[in-house]
Design a protein around this nucleic acid. Structure first.
Length: 428
RNA sequence: GGAGAGGUGGCAGAGUGGUCGAAUGUACCUGACUCGAAAUCAGGCGUAGGUUCAAACCUACCGUGGGUUCGAAUCCCACCCUCUCCGCCA
């Protein structure tokens, strides 16, 4: 959520900035509502003040045993007008708030301006691409060839966009998550947290998934009037830990890492990445979240991105870092780096992590604050990124580490997590 | 699922219709005392919003939402959450 003061003071600037991310902001409607709001609020507060003063008089008169019928008559008409004014004000504030909740964040000045994915800027490229002396197969062929990756059975159990893993592959999936957690907790100073996978609407609003993106979420009915949502990323529960909190200055930055499943309905992505486990309704992810002092958040973004990269480096997977352009960054983000891993079968780099600084956008929705140097509450900044998406990491390993005989080499960093095993062999 | 108790400021805790944004204690800040600190004394100390150059003033907020009333932390209704006991359960 943007600061409403900013909209009042610099409507043009905000509108222009939003335009760079392809968002058309109806400034005229906002302006009209704002003027209306001003008039109504002033009037409402006048009436309230009058009512308060009169009621006070009645109280005082009564305690002295005086007759209050004259004053009572005076206030008699006040009630209706006041009630109408209050309802009116409430209505207009609700409408403004609705608008406010659907405005995306402003891109940071260092976010490249552009319209789409093709305008993203490559920041760096790391690792060397392996050359294969046999025909490269994609992760589906490799996994199914091992008889350890099974989409048919998953489809029977649940439907499209699910997968079943067995044996060594299932173990490697587990090993990856363990490995990532260990690196981030032991070497990068994160505190591991275990969090709910079902969250309430307030949490979804807090991080920006609601009200705009309900269609992307899975939900369950908790009772007649309440829904719970399956988390699309651990960002939601973890970031919301500080919702409605005022954290101590000295405790910043808070650094949390969580391994959770993620659930996405992938509405609107029909036909995209239908093959394989690139785009699933359910996938595991290790997520890094930092709650930072506003003056430090861009340093933190660089740090956190580097920490996600560290996993790719350890696994010796080639990747590149992309700075997303204004037209491609997510709704809540001011700046985003995507990490894209090399997938030889696709002959392309594919997203495996997304690291963003949300500045105060989420914090304002969540009322997540810290007490500043002067002791005044001030909004924190939130930063998060995948470190990494576990399923896609597994895909990258299957493709980059495949062998001519159909087996898969296990990256050296992962071997301790697989009982020292070096290869996933084909079993006939 | 059943029975009971409770949700008030950073924390503790009073307040059952009027002068209550809220006693008191504690924490915290400033000053006095002190070589310094502790103790003591004095003062200050919630959040959000509005009018405004500012000062100042005003409004809202006592779990949430409704209601009664000239007036609600206080009365009524619904819901949420926490705790205790019983039952069930991974």
């Amino acid at each position: 959520m943007l600061d409403i003061q900013l909209l009042r003071n610099d409507l043009d600037g905000v509108t222009k900035s939003l335009a760079t991310r392809g968002f058309v902001f109806d400034a005229a409607t906002f302006q009209t509502l704002e003027m209306e709001r001003k008039t109504i609020q002033t009037r409402t507060q006048e009436l309230q003040a009058k009512r308060n003063a009169t009621s006070k008089q009645i109280g005082q008169a009564k305690s002295k045993g005086e007759d209050v019928s004259a004053i009572m008559a005076e206030v008699a008409n006040l009630g209706d007008e006041l009630k109408a004014a209050e309802l009116n004000l409430e209505d207009i504030q609700a409408r403004m708030n609705e608008i406010l909740l659907t405005i995306p964040n402003l891109p940071h000045e260092t976010t490249p301006t552009g319209k789409s994915e093709s305008d993203n800027v490559e920041v760096r490229r790391v690792g060397t691409l392996r050359s294969f002396d046999f025909d490269v197969r994609d992760h589906v062929d490799v996994g199914e060839g091992l008889n350890q990756l099974d989409f048919g059975t998953a489809a029977k159990i649940s439907g499209a966009r699910f997968s079943v893993m067995r044996g060594q592959l299932a173990r490697m999936h587990r090993a990856l998550a363990q490995f990532m957690l260990d690196v981030h907790t032991q070497e990068h100073g994160y505190t591991e947290v275990y969090v709910p996978y079902l969250v309430n609407a307030d949490s979804m609003r807090g991080t920006g998934q609601l009200p705009k993106f309900e269609a992307d979420l899975f939900a369950v009915q908790k009772n007649e009037n309440e829904k719970l949502y399956l988390i699309p990323t651990a960002e939601v529960p973890v970031t919301n830990m500080v919702r409605d909190e005022i954290v101590a200055l000295e405790s910043l930055p808070l650094k949390f890492v969580a391994h959770t499943p993620c659930f996405r309905s992938e509405a609107g992505s029909y036909g995209r990445d239908t093959r394989g486990m690139i785009r699933q309704h359910q996938f595991d992810k290790v997520e890094l979240v930092q709650i930072a002092h506003p003056s430090k958040s861009y340093e933190v973004l660089e740090e956190l991105t580097g920490q996600a990269e560290a996993i790719l480096k350890r696994l010796e997977l080639p990747y590149r870092v992309m700075a997303l352009c204004s037209g491609d960054i997510g709704f809540s983000a001011a700046k985003t780096y995507d990490l894209e891993v090399w997938l030889p079968a696709q002959n392309a780099y594919r997203e495996i992590s997304s690291c963003s600084n949300f500045e105060a956008f989420q914090a304002r929705r969540m009322q997540a604050r810290y007490r500043n140097e002067k002791g005044k509450p001030e909004l924190v900044h939130t930063i998060n990124g995948s470190g990494l998406a576990v399923g896609r990491t597994l895909v990258a390993i299957l493709e980059n580490y495949q062998r001519a005989d159909g087996g898969v080499d296990i990256p050296a960093a992962l071997q301790p997590y697989m009982g020292g095993q070096k290869v996933i062999e084909v079993v006939s």
